[in-house]
């Protein structure tokens, strides 16, 4: 487990301050997409080894949702960005 995460708002923080929500790669299907597409989105996850993108929430800090790109084998953290910034969101 990567133990130091540099939050774009708060700086370098220990992983204990965060809670991990899961894979950040699935894209939400359109509301009327097929049941199969929704089933994939809600339930089906790959379990890759190596570089992954995950949603982390900085619960004990700024409480923002972040997208952490890290390697689950070497523990390297490549990038940490605000989840809203990735989608051109506010603030």
């Amino acid at each position: 487990m990567a133990s130091l995460i540099s939050c774009p708002h708060c700086g370098v923080r220990p992983k204990e301050e965060f809670s991990i929500r899961g894979d950040a790669t699935p894209v939400r299907p359109a509301p009327m997409a097929s049941d199969e597409a929704w089933n994939d989105y809600v339930h089906v996850r790959a379990n890759p080894r190596g570089r992954i993108r995950e949603h982390w929430q900085h619960v004990a800090g700024c409480r923002r949702w972040l997208v952490v790109e890290r390697d689950n084998f070497t523990h390297d953290v490549f990038s940490v960005t605000d989840a809203a910034a990735g989608r051109g969101g506010a603030q």
Partner: peptide, 8 residues
């Protein structure tokens, strides 16, 4: 001095 942040 002057900095503030929420932390655990």
């Amino acid at each position: 001095v002057g900095r503030a942040a929420t932390m655990l």
